[in-house]
């Protein structure tokens, strides 16, 4: 049976892992490659590295870090942040990343999703969607959560699926960094709607939150950062908990 994936996310700025609350107030959480190796040993199924300053400051992803990660680990990983052209995508994969995550650049130029998928295959294209709730809908935000796009999140998910995205990484900005739990309703709505794998992100604080994202939100994978960085929950504990809740995981 296909297992549900647990994916630690490392937000990287200037070569260091950081994690903020609601996209701001950054705190230092260590060397990314060291952390990545620790997570891999603890049973992480995949990893995501987001160069969080890339879009704001125009920096490109740290390809050298990608190469070091690829040499150190034998699990898949995704790189995002600052990837704005098909050549950026190719470079990230050539450096050893398995997938790239497109966010602001896809919003600015949606055909990037098609072009990147054609060049490297859809399975390597993750589209990240940062979402804020408005009254009765969900809106897409861009540029590391600093600018509203006016786009409806569900329609944007439909569009990137049509354009050939291989996976969606959906972050609830309302929940991100709050440890108040994932936006389960958003996840379930998207999972029922789009037939590519869905990674839940934003808000993990407890093991129960992760369980709910999978069982109620129908997420295929769950991404979290701060609960792992600060040793609130270990990946192996979390997986045992999910296993005991009849969720298939790689133990």
């Amino acid at each position: 049976m296909l297992t549900k994936r647990i994916i630690p996310c490392l937000d990287v700025k200037d070569g260091r892992t950081v994690k903020g609350t609601n996209f701001l107030q950054l705190r230092d959480a260590g060397d990314p490659v060291e952390l990545a190796a620790r997570y891999s040993d603890e049973g992480a199924d995949e990893l995501v590295f987001l160069d969080i300053s890339a879009t704001l400051e125009g920096r490109k992803t740290f390809l050298q870090m990608v190469e070091r990660v690829a040499a150190a680990l034998q699990i898949p990983f995704t790189v995002g942040g600052g990837i704005s052209t098909v050549d950026d995508v190719s470079r990230a994969l050539e450096a050893g990343a398995d997938k790239v995550s497109l966010n602001s650049a896809a919003i600015a130029r949606p055909s990037l999703v098609d072009e990147a998928g054609k060049r490297v295959g859809s399975q390597s294209i993750v589209v990240a969607i940062d979402v804020k709730r408005t009254k009765d809908s969900w809106t897409v935000w861009t540029k590391a959560g600093t600018e509203p796009t006016g786009r409806d999140a569900l329609l944007w998910a439909d569009e990137v699926f049509q354009r050939g995205a291989g996976e969606l990484l959906v972050t609830s900005m309302d929940r991100d960094g709050t440890t108040a739990g994932y936006d389960v309703e958003l996840l379930r709505t998207l999972s029922d709607r789009v037939s590519i794998p869905l990674i839940a992100s934003g808000g993990a604080g407890t093991q129960e939150h992760v369980r709910d994202a999978i069982l109620l939100g129908k997420a295929d994978a769950v991404l979290a950062a701060s609960i792992f960085h600060y040793n609130k929950i270990s990946i192996s504990e979390l997986k045992s908990f999910l296993h005991n809740n009849n969720i298939p995981v790689r133990l």
Partner: peptide
Amino acid sequence: NSEQSVLKVPHMGWNQ
């Protein structure tokens, strides 16, 4: 076939 079932495609992740 993702249309006749609830399968997500691609098949992505760890399987037996």
